[in-house]
Design a binder for these strands. Structure first.
Length: 389
DNA sequence: TCTATGCAAATTCAA
DNA sequence: ATTGAATTTGCATAG
């Protein structure tokens, strides 16, 4: 990715962007419903901050469409698009997690009104979290960038997003602010992009469509989850049936939904097209990219290898460079003796063991120290949570 | 056999 | 490097 100055011809073009982190150096970018992958390994010139993927001050990025075969890019005439946007606070919306989208409505979600900060250039900047201030009443917590209810003032115009609208509409609203920010001459409009709550939500619509087509294709949630690993998208491996199920029932967090959507979209496109293109063409030795046992893999991919029941779709194992790092560590099941010993230690001795104590426990229980450490972290969290009830 | 869900392990982020 | 808090996600199992 190369930093480019803003294309003046593009300044009044309204562009809706969303960005989905894939890993520390690449992301999926959705611009006007088209997906692009971005890659920036050079941290110094990175358009993204590693942890938050906020755009830097240049505000302009060049994107090489992923649909081009990476090996056959026409360097003389790369298709590029300019996009000016930020990752905005919506990406870190604080919200009750699961089930909030039931009935396609956001409930209990009235947060205070916020004033958008003015940045050093005098431009209203909703993305400077430290400048966000709660301005309505004292019953609300101090404002953070993760809060939703935005009130923007540029001393001339005022625009307010209707907070009873859905988060997706708010996203559009903020995109308008982005446009404004990118070009101070443009007019901010809110009503244009804000749509009624409900079925018109693009995400909800996609989810409905996704589920319908998955069922049409006769593919189970578990199979979808496993197939995602073979998509070879950096930062994404397989997902569990649970996660696909939750995606289909809109019961993941909004941020999570947004992150998963483009990946599932790509999967669906490939399934519908009935073709599989390994975009990266890794030539290295084929290896089991899912780190499964042979038994596992045979079973996992029976439907993809059995062309008598399903059309051949894509090979069960795609050579995948970073497959191992895409793989979430297997969930450890701690029970019986191990659980008893850990709980005894936690309750009776120390809920905050030293490194040495954790080493000893790890040795005694024959478990990795990291698992022990995480267990204590989670246990402390659990206790804190329970004590609040 | 497939999907939904409770619990909690693992990951991420910021301090 | 470590931690707390928040969040994502998988396992086990219920439906």
């Amino acid at each position: 990715m190369i930093n480019q100055p803003m294309d003046p011809k593009n300044t009044d073009q309204k562009t809706l962007c969303s960005m989905h982190k894939m890993n520390h150096h690449s992301s999926l970018l959705n611009i006007n419903n088209r997906n692009y992958s971005t890659d920036c390994k050079d941290e110094q010139s990175s358009m993204f901050q590693l942890s938050t993927l906020k755009f830097n001050d240049i505000e302009t990025i060049m994107i090489h469409p992923k649909s081009d075969d990476d090996n056959n890019v026409d360097d003389s005439k790369p298709e590029t698009k300019y996009c000016s946007s930020y990752e905005h606070p919506l990406n870190s919306i604080k919200q009750p997690s699961r089930n909030i989208y039931q009935n396609n409505e956001i409930s209990n979600f009235r947060s205070p009104i916020f004033e958008i900060g003015i940045n050093s250039c005098g431009i209203p900047d909703p993305f400077i979290s430290s400048n966000l201030k709660c301005s309505n009443n004292d019953n609300n917590p101090p404002g953070k960038s993760s809060d939703l209810n935005l009130f923007m003032s540029d001393h001339q115009n005022q625009c307010q997003c209707d907070m009873s609208s859905s988060v997706w509409d708010k996203w559009s609203f903020l995109s308008s602010i982005n446009s404004y920010h990118a070009n101070s001459d443009c007019t901010i409009t809110t009503t244009e992009t804000i749509q009624p709550v409900g079925k018109s939500d693009a995400l909800a619509e996609f989810v409905d469509m996704f589920k319908e087509k998955r069922i049409q294709l006769g593919i189970t949630q578990a199979e979808v989850g496993r197939a995602l690993g073979a998509l070879n998208l950096s930062g994404f491996g397989c997902l569990s049936q649970s996660t696909i199920c939750r995606f289909e029932s809109l019961s993941l967090s909004h941020k999570n939904m947004l992150a998963l959507k483009p990946v599932l979209e790509i999967w669906l496109q490939q399934m519908e097209g009935g073709l599989w293109v390994n975009q990266e063409h890794h030539l290295q030795e084929s290896h089991n990219c899912f780190n499964r046992t042979p038994t596992d893999s045979t079973d996992s991919f029976r439907n993809f290898s059995d062309s008598s029941t399903n059309p051949p779709v894509f090979p069960p194992f795609t050579p995948l460079k970073d497959s191992v790092e895409n793989q979430r560590r297997k969930r450890t099941c701690i029970m019986g003796r191990e659980k008893y010993i850990l709980e005894s230690f936690f309750n009776a001795t120390n809920c905050r063991p030293t490194s040495d104590q954790m080493n000893q426990l790890a040795l005694r229980l024959n478990m990795p120290k990291s698992v022990i450490r995480v267990w204590f972290c989670n246990q402390r969290q659990k206790h804190k949570r329970l004590s609040k009830l």
